[in-house]
Design a binder for these strands. Structure first.
Length: 908
RNA sequence: GGGCUCGUAGAUCAGGGGUAGAUCGCUUCCUUCGCAAGGAAGAGGCCGCGGGUUCAAAUCCCGCCGAGUCCA
């Protein structure tokens, strides 16, 4: 990175000098000319523990307020944090890991204006990759708040923002000023040059270091990935300047709070009350501060990448205080676990507070992971306080309103985990018994137990030991698990036909009046494709597929009639896929299939009505997780932590139809996105975030959503909503399948017809069908048993008449019996019970033969049956005691019976 | 979004092409003043659903439904 990028006037004016750190080789800026090293570990160590650099101690809340109000008083607008569940607005990541995530990709790319410019925010973030270090290093937390100020600048004209708000000089000046306002000794502060790369962007950056701690990162994002770019960055890729250049800062709220208190660990500073409560409830004794501080200081010197690093830290500190490693571990592990529990409960509060439902996919899975880990840690230190109480405490502190649901979710999830553990224990016990003779459980079984059943190897070891079976967990265990998942990849990417850059955005007439289906337009171009044509018009009433609503169909005509089979929108241009080409420049008349459009409109409005009904019945945590509208039926998926009961489904249906009958107007309006967000909140974006300054808002009764679909004008036009089915898509996501309008009536009639026909078959009134069906089923089972008994009796009777013979002293009965194989079997069994060999054959459709041999006679029944069956033109077999077979040759049954005697003689 | 595992008696689970089983629980009887325990007998199964292969499917194959779990 070019040195000039970092040579700021601010540094010159304030007496900074640029130095090269002899340890790490990086350049840094400092006011203290005598300073040799950059200040950041491992070049320097933590010196703030017991020696806080600020004038006052701050709590987390106080520090957050201090920061935000500082920037507010410097002309920044304070905005509310986004959810920690970043998957709600982008599909490339799961969790929010930095404040800039809030503005990617729409704002950073210049498609959408920022909510304010410049702005300040304190954004909760979660970094799962640190999970193993939480509690142990003294500094890692799973969740943290990234306090930030951002300025969005652009050289380009006509984007969502233009011109420069401020850039590097002001950013560094703000940082200095903020630190000074806290009373930080400015000559101890260093600004380390440290180019930043991430997510396809890059730029110069400073790390701000004070007393060994990295407090903030000031990123000047002005590069984008470009094969031919002139800047090569540390990731090995080349980048070039972009039109937008963005100030992206990150001030660690937890770090600032920690430094202000100078406690041995960050955990004591950030959640003192929670740590106290956990230690007290679990009876955890705290080691001396000095020991904890040593661990933090030493761990602070290194990037902790794996468990070995932490082991090294502990060994060193243990040596210093004169303890064996084992004793030292016994001393610090409980408090470390207590710290981790305190931390994890806050993460859970963030996650569940933002409406994440534990699940087996996506962010829900991460929530489950954290929750289960928390339960294990709490168990290890004997913490008996219900987890829901701890999470609720954190949620209360963070000001979440959905606390009852959070409690509910935590309780259910802990119960589920208990069940999984129970199930796991039984499975491990069985597996251990299976390998009891070998003395140990093989590694592939361990992998299987973990991967398919979620049982940690240490738990396997514990239980297997009780059974006297040993377990060797290889060091690369989790790598072995990963191997199982790495076998195949190859997602075929379908290429999209690129949009002609010359084409203007198509006029979307369906927004003016969704009721109208005819229009005139000019053909701008026709493209020939593999399976038809794509026509672009200057304007259209055809709705292109989007937002879960399928495309309209219809015709375009000017003498020629072109059938429109599909409609897609790409970069604002609508493509009509047709079976015929139309000439460029022609004026055409368009006609959308009106009935289909009508049905789709009803279904779309009904979708809003149903999700709103679900929210009213189940609670505010219900959030759309996907939807597909159709002509015959539609479906809506939404988050909910329990299976829907029949009664809840009925109630949702009742509430939905009440909204229909209310016949309220469906309001559609274009609002400034920031006004809309302010008024309706982030939950506006149930189906993803649209681009642009203005967004379309659809209001159906109490339900308000950003939505680009076509709707009926009053709820009454939906006519009738019928819920047809519910499914569980994943843990935590329920699906409701429903029909609206005419197809809802059809759906009801279909069900009615089924019931009618059933009633007719039974010959009872419809109301009696359930009771009658139950009775019939019971009686059917009774009769099955009766038949079995009668068959046995019949078999006895028939075999009584059978002639007994002897072959080499073995009693033997061969008899023809035309009955199904079950009966032959029953008959053979009763003969075998008398100590005789039995051969029964007969026809029942095809020919069948059964051979039974008492245990004490040395004759293989299966073999005999096989030979007899081959006479019948088929095949057969069985066990030594019992054989059966059959074939198509019914006219050779008697012959087979006759020959059974000689076959048995051979086999004996 | 992808992978893996599992659906058999009220519960927990065996079996894995050839007669559906075990343990606990349940019912009745015996022993007992009574209970626990013990003994004896018994009831209880659309082997998740639907197709296919086969002389024969709980078992093999395909699809669906349901449950669990790991990963991105």
């Amino acid at each position: 990175m070019d040195e000039d990028e970092y040579r700021l006037e601010y540094f010159e004016e304030n007496g900074f000098v640029r130095k090269e750190c002899p340890e790490c080789g990086r350049y840094f800026w400092t006011r203290d000319a005598s300073k040799e090293t950059c200040g950041e570990p491992p070049c320097d160590e933590y010196t703030f523990i017991g020696n806080p650099p600020f004038d006052d101690e701050f709590t987390l809340e106080e520090m957050r307020e201090e920061f935000l109000s500082f920037f507010e008083s410097h002309d920044h607008t304070r905005i509310d944090p986004y959810p920690v569940d970043a998957s709600r607005w982008r599909d490339d990541v799961l969790l929010t890991q930095a404040s800039i995530y809030d503005f990617q990709p729409l704002v950073t790319s210049g498609k959408t204006p920022p909510p304010a410019n410049p702005l300040t925010i304190s954004q909760p973030c979660i970094r799962m990759q640190d999970i193993d270090n939480v509690g142990r290093t003294g500094r890692h937390t799973l969740a943290f708040e990234m306090m930030a100020h951002h300025a969005f600048n652009s050289r380009a004209e006509g984007g969502a923002y233009e011109g420069e708000v401020y850039w590097k000089e002001e950013t560094v000046a703000y940082c200095d000023e903020f630190l000074e306002s806290l009373g930080a000794p400015l000559d101890e502060v260093t600004y380390v040059e440290s180019p930043w790369v991430g997510g396809g962007n890059a730029g110069p950056a400073f790390e701000v270091i004070l007393r060994g701690a990295e407090l903030a990162t000031l990123v000047f994002m002005d590069l984008e990935l470009d094969e031919d770019g002139e800047y090569e960055m540390k990731d090995g890729n080349t980048y070039s300047k972009m039109d937008n250049y963005i100030v992206d800062t990150g001030y660690g709220l937890e770090r600032f709070t920690w430094l202000s208190q100078g406690t041995p660990t960050v955990y004591e500073a950030v959640y003192p009350d929670m740590v106290d409560r956990i230690c007290e409830d679990a009876g955890v004794e705290r080691p001396e501060d000095e020991i904890l501080a040593d661990v933090a200081r030493l761990a602070g010197m290194m990037d902790i990448d794996d468990v070995d690093d932490m082991r090294g830290v502990r060994r060193t500190v243990a040596d210093d205080v004169g303890l064996t490693l084992a004793d030292f571990n016994d001393l610090v592990t409980p408090i470390e676990n207590a710290y981790a529990v305190a931390d994890h409960t806050r993460v859970l509060a963030y996650m569940l507070g933002d409406g994440i439902v534990p699940s087996n996919v996506g962010t829900g899975y991460l929530a489950r992971l954290v929750l289960r880990r928390t339960v294990r840690l709490a168990d290890e230190i004997g913490l008996e306080t219900p987890l829901e109480d701890l999470v609720d405490g954190q949620a209360k502190r963070l000001g979440y309103r959905n606390r009852p649901v959070i409690r509910d979710v935590v309780r259910e999830e802990v119960e589920k985990y208990d069940e999984t553990l129970e199930r796991g224990k039984r499975l491990v016990r069985r597996t251990a018994e299976e390998y009891a003779d070998q003395g140990s459980i093989p590694v592939e079984e361990l992998v299987e137990l973990y991967d398919s059943h979620g049982i940690q190897p240490d738990m396997v070891a514990e239980i297997a030991e009780e059974e006297g079976v040993s377990v060797d967990v290889p060091d690369d265990f989790y790598a072995l698990v990963a191997d199982r998942h790495e076998e195949r990849e190859s997602d075929e990417e379908h290429e999209e036909e690129t949009v002609d850059a010359e084409l203007p955005e198509t006029g979307l007439l369906y927004y003016d009046d969704a009721e109208r289906t005819e229009f005139e337009a000019v053909v701008l171009n026709t493209y020939e494709r593999d399976d038809g044509y794509e026509i672009v018009l200057d304007q259209t009433r055809f709705y292109p597929e989007g937002g879960g609503q399928p495309a309209d169909t219809g015709v375009l005509e000017n003498g020629e009639v072109a059938r429109v089979e599909d409609v897609q929108i790409r970069d604002g241009v609508v493509f009509h896929r047709t079976d015929k080409p139309l000439s460029k420049g022609d004026v055409v008349r368009g006609q959308v299939d009106a009935d289909r459009r009508r049905a789709l409109m009803q279904n779309h409005t009904a979708t809003h009505i149903v999700i709103d009904a679900a929210r009213r019945v189940l609670g505010d945590h219900v959030r759309q997780a996907g939807a597909q509208k159709g002509v015959e039926s539609s479906r809506i998926d939404f988050t909910h932590h329990k299976r829907l009961t029949k009664e809840e489904v009925r109630e949702i249906e009742r509430v939905a139809n009440r909204t229909v009958r209310k016949n309220v107007r469906v309001k559609d309006s274009w609002l400034d996105r920031h006004d809309a967000e302010e008024e309706y909140g982030f939950d506006l974006y149930q189906g993803g975030i649209p681009a642009g300054e203005e967004i379309r808002i659809i209001q159906v009764d109490d339900d308000v959503q950003a939505c680009g679909g076509t709707h009926v004008s009053r709820t009454g036009e939906v006519g009738f909503v019928k819920i047809r089915n519910t499914e569980r898509i994943q843990d935590g996501v329920e699906r409701i399948v429903f029909s609206a309008g005419e197809s809802a009536v059809n759906a009801t009639q279909t069900i009615e017809t089924a019931l009618e026909e059933t009633a007719e078959t039974f010959g009872v009134p419809r109301d009696d069908v359930p009771e009658t069906a139950r009775r019939f089923f019971e009686e059917w089972k009774e009769r099955g048993k009766e038949i079995e008994e009668l068959r046995a009796e019949l078999a006895d009777l028939r075999t009584d008449t059978a002639e007994e013979e002897e072959i080499d002293g073995v009693p033997f009965v061969a008899q023809r019996m035309d009955a199904d194989i079950d009966e032959l079997r029953t008959a053979a069994n009763s003969v075998v019970d008398e100590g005789k060999v039995a051969v029964f054959a007969g026809k029942n459709g095809s020919a069948g033969v059964v051979v039974g041999v008492p245990k004490d006679i040395d004759l293989n029944a299966g073999e005999v049956a096989g030979k007899l069956a081959s006479l019948l033109g088929g095949d057969g077999g069985g066990s030594p005691e019992f054989g059966q077979g059959g074939g198509p040759n019914i006219d050779r049954i008697d012959e087979a019976l006759e020959r059974s005697k000689e076959i048995i003689e051979e086999e004996l």
